[in-house]
Amino acid sequence: MHKNFKGVEKTVFGRGSFDQLGDILAPHRTGENPYMVFLVDAYFNGKPLESRVPAQNNDLVYYISVEEHEPTTEQIDTLRDEILAKQGLPAGVVGIGGGSIMDIAKALSLMLTNEGSSTLYQGLNLIKKPGVYHVGVPTISGTGAEVSMTAVLTGPEKKLGLKCEWTVFDQIVLDPDLIATVPRDWWFYTGMDTYIHCVESENGQFNNAYSHAFAEQSLALCREIFSKGQTPETDEKLMVASLMGGLSLTYSEVGVCHALSYGLSKILGTRHCYANCLIMNHLDDYYPEGVAEFKQFVAQHNITLPQNLSAEWDDDTITKMAEVSYNLPHMWNHAIGYDWKNTITMDVLKDLFRRL
Rank of each mutant, 00 (worst) to 15 (best):
M1W: 09
K6C: 12
K6L: 11
E9R: 14
F13A: 08
D41N: 09
Y43G: 01
N45F: 12
L49M: 05
R52Q: 15
V53G: 03
P54K: 05
N57T: 11
N57H: 11
Y63L: 12
E67V: 14
E68R: 13
E70P: 13
T78W: 00
R80C: 06
L89R: 15
G92N: 06
G97T: 05
G99E: 06
L108Y: 05
S109D: 09
M111G: 10
E115C: 06
Q122S: 11
K128R: 13
P130H: 07
G136A: 09
V147T: 10
V147D: 08
S148W: 01
K159C: 05
T167L: 01
P176V: 04
I179R: 04
F188H: 00
S201R: 07
G204V: 06
A209W: 08
L221W: 05
E224D: 14
S227W: 07
K228G: 04
G229D: 07
E233L: 12
E236F: 12
L243T: 01
Y251G: 00
Y251P: 03
C257G: 05
A259I: 05
A259K: 00
S265V: 06
C273T: 12
D284T: 04
Y287N: 09
E289W: 03
A292T: 14
E293A: 07
F297D: 00
F297S: 00
L305C: 00
L305V: 06
L305D: 00
L305N: 01
N308S: 14
S310T: 01
D315M: 05
I318H: 11
T319A: 15
K320R: 15
A322F: 01
K341M: 10
I344D: 01
D351Q: 15
R355K: 15
